[in-house]
Simulated scan of single mutants.
Amino acid sequence: MCYDIAFSANIESIFKYLPQLKAGGNLDIHFDPTWHKIGMSYPQWPVITHRNGLQLEQFTWGPIPKLLDTLEKVKRQRQLYLNARSEKVLENGTMWNAIRHQRCLIPATGFFEYRQVPGWKNKVAYHIKSREQEIFFIAGLWALSNSWDVDKPERIPTFTLLTRSANPLMAQIHNGGDNAGRMPMMLTNELAEEWVKPSLTDTDIREILRYKLPAGQLDCWPVNSVRKVKPDDATVIAPVIHEGLPALQL
């Protein structure tokens, strides 16, 4: 699944790709560029919603469903809700189906995934980005969650990032673990605009979720592990050469 993302651009860059945000967006939002954030730190992140017109907001990554009704459960299980399978959005009885009308977009400049290489002890980290534009949009869902913070007892806006079956390139990279063969639900700019429209029917949602970004629209290269503490700068995505690493089939 996708737990590592980046937004290394200026926040104002989002308006270049969704210019209609200028009318309803919040230009006062403060978000420092970051080369890597891990979902398990439950960071604040810019998201686009249509709660009160199309607007840019700042939500916390990681919903806290009602079934996590103790602080211990929150600590142990919240990470399970950082991602949601797109196939579950229209599946009756699921949490994601219940909030399918609370749609949002997660802007990013890149994400990271690990490749399992036969015979190698350690997996190889990759940085993946759009080949065609600096910022791309990932489909998401948002929800108001109990904060479990005694100093801030009010409910907080949170989001989950949708994933789907991987395209041929991502299937080669995300090829190990229980959730192998997945990738973020990346959308074209046109589909991103559609995704947050309040008037979408379930049929409309289904059509958007069928979209799979072609492998040829992605760039990727090996990097050092992003799960180790390091400065939050461009060195995070510096290419790394691994002797003997089998080439990806592009």
Rank of each mutant, 00 (worst) to 15 (best):
residue 162 L to Q: 07
residue 161 L to V: 15
residue 183 M to S: 09
residue 190 E to S: 13
residue 180 A to V: 02
residue 181 G to V: 03
residue 185 M to L: 14
residue 188 T to G: 07
residue 190 E to F: 12
residue 165 S to P: 10
residue 191 L to H: 13
residue 171 A to S: 15
residue 191 L to Q: 15
residue 164 R to Q: 15
residue 159 F to W: 01
residue 169 L to H: 07
residue 180 A to C: 08
residue 170 M to E: 07
residue 186 M to V: 15
residue 178 D to L: 13
residue 190 E to A: 14
residue 185 M to W: 04
residue 174 H to S: 05
residue 167 N to S: 06
residue 181 G to Q: 04
residue 178 D to I: 10
residue 191 L to R: 15
residue 160 T to I: 03
residue 164 R to A: 12
residue 191 L to V: 07
residue 161 L to K: 08
residue 169 L to V: 13
residue 187 L to W: 08
residue 176 G to F: 00
residue 170 M to K: 09
residue 162 L to S: 05
residue 166 A to L: 05
residue 180 A to E: 04
residue 188 T to W: 11
residue 165 S to A: 12
residue 168 P to W: 15
residue 157 P to N: 11
residue 176 G to V: 00
residue 178 D to G: 10
residue 171 A to V: 11
residue 163 T to V: 12
residue 169 L to I: 13
residue 189 N to C: 12
residue 183 M to L: 11
residue 156 I to G: 01
residue 160 T to D: 01
residue 182 R to M: 11
residue 186 M to Y: 06
residue 174 H to G: 03
residue 157 P to M: 09
residue 171 A to Y: 10
residue 164 R to T: 15
residue 170 M to F: 08
residue 167 N to T: 06
residue 169 L to S: 06
residue 188 T to R: 11
residue 189 N to L: 14
residue 189 N to R: 15
residue 167 N to L: 08
residue 169 L to E: 09
residue 190 E to P: 05
residue 156 I to H: 01
residue 172 Q to H: 11
residue 189 N to W: 08
residue 169 L to C: 06
residue 176 G to E: 01
residue 176 G to L: 00
residue 170 M to Y: 08
residue 182 R to L: 12
residue 164 R to K: 15
residue 170 M to R: 10
residue 162 L to A: 07
residue 161 L to S: 14
residue 165 S to G: 04
